[in-house]
Amino acid sequence: MLDALLVDSVVRSIQTGSLYALMAIGLTLTFNVVRLPNFAHAELITIGAYAALLVSMGISTNVPVILLAAFIAAALAAVLSHRLVFRPLERKGSSIYTLMLASFAVGMIFRYILFLIVDTYSLFDKRIQVPVEIWIRSTPLILTNLFFWAVPTSIVLVLLLTLLLRGTGLGREMRALAGNFDLARVMGIRVERVKMLTWFLAGGLAGVAGALWALQTSVNPTMGWLVILSVVAATFLGGMTSFVGTIVAAYIVSFSENTLMQLLNYFLGVDFGFKPAIPFIIILAVLLFRPDGIAALFQSIRKR
């Protein structure tokens, strides 16, 4: 009995953790390069999910096509929010707190626009039209095609992003902006262009994550909002600056929410209703005990 529950929860942990990683990477990217804790990231995820849903209903049920559409839709929404809201605010010299509050507002605007559309065309709690197939079944392990889309796609995208950052001129410029914005500007880097591309990439990744998420659950306008806390917990735990830290943290958060929760329930009888509290507890624990997150832990190990 426990075997089956455990295997099932580990599968879910890996699957959700990969998606968290993809979402958290975009958030870390905007935080570092554009210097904005962007809570509207939640709605970029939702927009990706709805783009995926619409494409699957009307155009194609081919998963790569769905993911591409989700990437583009969310990337455009991200660029739009940058151009219409965040860039004008930055030009006025707004503080990071103002920008963060504005990001809540932007998220809310996106969410209610979605509500409006969803209401008009009755798109509540629809499921994506990609049929679920079981690819591997060796009891108690059951892996569906959705697992094989979510996990490798996330890993490949995170790897590609790392390659872009570490191995190309564009990545070097992005790292420079993250390291020291004013200096990057004095060194002749076209900071506006780099920022815009960062928004495009971060938004696109959030969109793909939303689409992959939508493959395994029903789609509704609050789905991004409901996971954003776990994603923020992962970026905090990851230390806000390092990709590797963020990825490890994403899996830790996901394992705590699924496998750890399962164990707590089995052995101590903790109700599953406590699951949403887990990211809160992680955020609090990080702030109290390891404000620099996992990244600092890595550094102290490397220095030794």
Partner: peptide, 27 residues
Amino acid sequence: ALFVNMSVLDNTILPIQGQRGETPWNA
């Protein structure tokens, strides 16, 4: 004023103008 988390070589290459790998379609 250096990019402290980047290598000495990366710091030096950064200011070179018109690098082809810096555009998104070429990168």
